[in-house]
Amino acid sequence: MATATALPIPDFFNPAKVAEVWRVPYQERAAQARQWAQHYQIPPASDDPQRTILLLTDVQNTFCLPEFELFVPGAVADNQRLCRFIYTHLAQISEIIVTLDTHTASQIFHPLFWVNPAGEHPLPLTTITLQDVEEGYWQPNPHLLSSLPLGDLASLQTYARHYVAQLAAKGRFPLTIWPYHSMLGGIGHALVSAVEEACFFHTVARQQQTRIELKGSHPLTENYSVLRPEVSHDPQGRPLGAVNRALIEHLLAGDRLIIAGQAKSHCVAWTVADLLREIQQRDAQLAQRVYLLEDCMSPVVVPGVVDFSEAANAAFAEFAAAGINRISTSSVPWNL
């Protein structure tokens, strides 16, 4: 690694602005990043003898800012710590990869997709079960056929039953109807401004482009994990979305992989679970290269409605038992 010394945090970083949306002054930050690298003798990432990848899961306004659609309590403080981590470990982080949850209105987990016999759409946080679909309480919206890759209403209805049945059979979360969120082209889809700024600063200082991975755009399946969809095939066995093999290979080729982001109970947990499945099929020892930065992530909690804290804790206990490391920004074992 480039150095084992923690770097200072640039003066422009303002923790109070982590909860706000603003424009990153790219030209100014680029000049500062070049000066920073020169002053602290930070080499290009291509010179790193060991490659450390930082994977940031869905650090987007829609999940991380209090006034947005699916705010994860704790996300603002998580991102304050995350930004500090990026700046102080700038010389150790070889590459940053960000995932972006990417949606449109007519997807299977949004209200518009479903109707009841009265023509009403489900409210956000409604759970749709196999029984609901079989009894006709919730049915797919026939007016969306022209927006979906299905030919007729019968196929759409068959698919809807298949989808919720597959979730139950695979032991996944039941189908939850989420508020419209991470809408492609909208402000909620964007990275948190302070995190985008830190990634840009890293890109220029280390001369290593931040890699962006979009996920979740297929209308007929959820995509909590960036590595694979929740349901991968339709009733005829045709694939709905490809496994992200290129990203899997890239992540496993690094010497260290640090994972942070939102939400701990959903997109982070499912991504780690999918990666661990790949690791166990190849070499269980590879799990020791993975580090979960737990004070830079939080579970989904909607007070009085749903709390996924226990599910997150159970998943992370299983990850640790398989050899994956659980760390915090104050306990990075290979550096400070």
Rank of each mutant, 00 (worst) to 15 (best):
V72P: 03
A284Q: 13
A273N: 13
D283M: 14
L247T: 08
R277N: 08
I279N: 06
A205I: 03
D295I: 03
P43L: 10
Y26D: 11
V59F: 03
L227D: 09
A246P: 05
R256G: 06
L125S: 06
N79H: 12
L336A: 07
L82E: 04
E310V: 13
V18E: 05
Q207T: 04
R172E: 14
E20C: 09
P122E: 07
E278V: 10
E120N: 11
D234E: 05
Y40P: 00
E134H: 07
L145V: 07
L144A: 03
T271P: 08
T221P: 06
A287H: 10
F68S: 05
P174F: 04
P174C: 06
L251Q: 10
R81K: 14
L145F: 12
P44Q: 08
L293C: 14
Q32T: 00
P10C: 09
H233E: 13
R256Y: 12
H266E: 08
L247R: 10
P25I: 02
E213I: 15
L54W: 01
A312Y: 01
M297F: 09
R84P: 11
P219M: 04
F13S: 12
T57Y: 00
L275C: 11
L7F: 11
P25A: 07
P179D: 05
L123S: 13
L90I: 12
S265M: 06
E95A: 09
